[in-house]
Design a protein around this nucleic acid. Sequence first.
DNA 1: CATGAATGAGACTTCATTCAT
DNA 2: GATGAATGAAGTCTCATTCAT
Lengths: 209, 209, 209, 209
Amino acid sequence: MNRKNQQQASPTRLSREESQARTREGLIQAATRLFAEKGYGGTSIRDIAEQSGHSQGAFYSNFHSKEELLLEMLRQHMQAEAVQLNTLVEQKQRSPAEILDDLEAWASALDQDPHWCMLSIELQLHAQRSATFAAAYQAVWLQHRDVLAQWMARLFAERQLQMPAAPQDIASTFMALAHGLALQRAATGSGASGRLMVVLLRGLMALSA
Amino acid sequence: MNRKNQQQASPTRLSREESQARTREGLIQAATRLFAEKGYGGTSIRDIAEQSGHSQGAFYSNFHSKEELLLEMLRQHMQAEAVQLNTLVEQKQRSPAEILDDLEAWASALDQDPHWCMLSIELQLHAQRSATFAAAYQAVWLQHRDVLAQWMARLFAERQLQMPAAPQDIASTFMALAHGLALQRAATGSGASGRLMVVLLRGLMALSA
Amino acid sequence: MNRKNQQQASPTRLSREESQARTREGLIQAATRLFAEKGYGGTSIRDIAEQSGHSQGAFYSNFHSKEELLLEMLRQHMQAEAVQLNTLVEQKQRSPAEILDDLEAWASALDQDPHWCMLSIELQLHAQRSATFAAAYQAVWLQHRDVLAQWMARLFAERQLQMPAAPQDIASTFMALAHGLALQRAATGSGASGRLMVVLLRGLMALSA
Amino acid sequence: MNRKNQQQASPTRLSREESQARTREGLIQAATRLFAEKGYGGTSIRDIAEQSGHSQGAFYSNFHSKEELLLEMLRQHMQAEAVQLNTLVEQKQRSPAEILDDLEAWASALDQDPHWCMLSIELQLHAQRSATFAAAYQAVWLQHRDVLAQWMARLFAERQLQMPAAPQDIASTFMALAHGLALQRAATGSGASGRLMVVLLRGLMALSA
DNA sequence: CATGAATGAGACTTCATTCAT
DNA sequence: GATGAATGAAGTCTCATTCAT
């Protein structure tokens, strides 16, 4: 596989692997955009191929099926979210005020990237309909919930407050809220801003004050 | 198959209008079930006709198109939710504790009827994709939000508390949360219960205590 | 279903059932021709639809799948062959010479209708590849073999000759021969004529003379 | 994947030509198996490549097209059958009993190798559909028929019997029978055994006894 | 109004083949 | 010579919708 050295001459020519990776990435990006806009079911492979500038066959050279592409997107989604959440969790020694700023930052990032949330909704809808996919989705979801729960638990611990419910339940409630808001924004063009999430969290902390 | 005898006007036979209304209602009910389970895009008119025991032609005798059926479902959805919310709002002179019970009842009703919420999500998704439908959806949504907002405003007023944000924003946040939770439950089979909605509301009230 | 009497007026207009039957028959005939010419696998539903002058959808209104059409053709094939063979079998009191004439007639009918035999070969090939279809095919085949075996047994009995093998084995050998000759004729354009089948049969009779 | 070391000429390594011949042979063998099982049309080049453990590219390095591979198989088929038949023909000075044993051996060899016959049927079917291929097939077929005819002629001559038809016609009839029986066996799982071919031949000889 | 066969477009997928590596 | 990603055409089948009955 180290055959690329045979041609290392022209830096403009892509090696085979690079070119393939580029095709694959182009397909994923086109699909991400289209799934967010028109939904998983409403997006055809023709659409994805056209948007990405490749043939339908190129799609099938990279993915066994439409669902496999969705799984790949789930994996990427998972990885990106994990990085994001871990950044929040691992920032030790932050003042309570800074932690709330973190949450606000997270909430408003969700606000800014509606594609992200719509995709997440598409993933959830598809999980409801495909057993195969549901299993994969569940694993990702549990992991995220727990990272977020851990982060919230520390938020309360550092303020020496009692949590008014299990940290996992609070975490999944906030995840649900983020998704619901994204849907609302998509459907109505307006809807409540994510800023209210911070207010709700403050409320929870006020309960045991 | 001896349906042509309907005209004989025997009192046990349905009149033409009754029969037609029954057909229409059967189609709507079948579609409601199917949309919730398989989504709007995933449900074909053949499916709806089969589930309801009528022909595809019967569908087109009652609705101009698939989207018109969705609009009809939106209208029914709207009306049912309005009745439900108005019941809450119009029950004057309730003690604060009773009002919270009302909210809990509302939240747990949502919990118990996942079809309801999944349909609502389908409506929102379709609103995102069809301009015609979006307009209709927006009107319904604003109305509901305002009824809920009004009810929440009274909740705070009766306790002489300040609302930590505009009542409409709080209302839409809670609607979003209800939808997000429904989606979560559908996708993961578990997810946080709606009971947490009451905790969140208490938190908001605690903020200005 | 006796609604056609409502319109019995114009004899040129086809009733619904007649029109449907005509469509179905047109599809079957187009498919029969195409399967014989290009094989089952080599014939697409697009081909069949075009040849018959209908849309692809018309095909699927009449058959669930391509294989179901093949099953229908098997049924028709079966019925036609059964009629043909029963005619031979039921002609009692024929002189031995006349019986041999019958065989010759049968063999040369096969000779004259290459479509018939090619279709039979297609059916056998498909039976080899689809378990569903194999079961249906086996039933038809056994029935035909037994009718032919019965006829041959009488041929020997009337001449008071012993059969040199089980009548069923002789019958299936002759059926195999007919198919093999059809294939040969199709492939090479020439091949041995079916007339030799009579010679072979005479040979079998000569064995116990 | 360290195949580039082949040039080191160590005696255990294959030379370039040997390696190529091995690839080619592997492809042919895989294709033979698959064509017999799933038919020419039902077998894809991907299938052949996978079965043989090579790439699709390797296929096109060895054959210009799918049909060219079939032609190559026809050539090999031809050569193998010729060897087989010549063995029979060239064994001079065999007693009449031994000659019949030879035929029985040939018939039962066909019985034992269904792949062989199914492949032959595929070749005939393809000949019917491709003019190019038909010409090649015809040549092979005529040659085989004549070898078999010659052998049969001797069978009769040695017994001083008259042939009841032209030797070529008898030969092609027996070839057709062998193919028809193979097809029957493949389709029904049972069918008459090839043993009956010997009975038929004895019958032919009995005719002029 | 109800029927359901028929339509034409478009869905997902597989194919034989090409070509840069 | 061998690789396998990419192509474009074609495959089976489903869809929302129409219309003669």
